[in-house]
């Protein structure tokens, strides 16, 4: 494993490096799903590189992102992190993005999310997190529910999909929610 911060069952998280930029661009270029946002947007390696460099400049940044890698072969399969960090209120928004498509729905995202939540609650000692999911993205809504998040409500009229205005679903999570979900997930994984 390369420079791991936290290690899970099958994945680990590590800092993003400039050398990840091309891999992230490749994952985005191969995207098959169109429901996550209004539509797909190619993001090139130059943009990823700039983002990685910029988000590592501050000691107390407004966002922290991790590379998510498979333990078995160090393959980068996506990234997760927190944005809109409020260091005084001790809150943030969690985000995740995974690919390639054939590696989805295998539990890697949940494994990585529990590492992210461990980092947030037990290392940064954040108090609460939220997650914002565009309503058509039912897969992510189901995933965060399984990971312990609770539906907190919706922002109306966030964006257009198939000619109609759709909402963004807002979820929140506190440490006890995460502990309960992680323990249940571990018990299922180890059966």
């Amino acid at each position: 494993m390369r420079n791991p911060i936290l290690v899970g069952e099958r994945v680990y998280i590590r800092p993003l490096e400039e050398s990840d930029a091309q891999l992230l661009a490749d994952i985005y270029a191969a995207e098959t799903d169109t429901f996550n946002e209004r539509g797909r947007l190619p993001v090139g390696p130059l943009a990823w590189k700039k983002w990685i460099v910029e988000t590592h400049k501050e000691a107390y940044p407004s966002e922290i992102n991790f590379a998510v890698c498979l333990i078995e072969n160090d393959q980068l399969i996506g990234h997760n992190g927190i944005v809109d960090i409020n260091w005084i209120n001790r809150t943030a928004e969690s985000v995740s993005d995974f690919g390639p498509a054939e590696l989805r729905s295998k539990g890697y995202g949940t494994d990585a999310k529990h590492l992210l939540l461990e980092y947030c609650f037990d290392i940064l000692h954040l108090h609460a997190l939220r997650s914002e999911i565009f309503e058509p993205n039912t897969r992510s809504a189901a995933a965060v529910t399984k990971q312990g998040y609770k539906l907190a409500g919706r922002w109306h009229y966030e964006d257009i999909k198939n000619g109609v205005m759709r909402d963004t679903l807002i979820f929140d999570i506190l440490r006890p929610d995460w502990i309960a979900a992680r323990d249940a997930w571990r018990a299922r994984e180890r059966k």
């Binding site: 005084i88 209120n89 001790r90 809150t91 108090h127 609460a128 939220r130 609770k150 907190a152 409500g153 919706r154 922002w155 109306h156 009229y157 807002i170 929140d172 506190l174």
Partner: peptide
Amino acid sequence: SVRLREFVPVPGGRADELIYEAL
């Protein structure tokens, strides 16, 4: 539209953050 539990520090503890929307 939204109630985020314990999202705001207030004297002596934390409060929920409410999001109201005028539609």
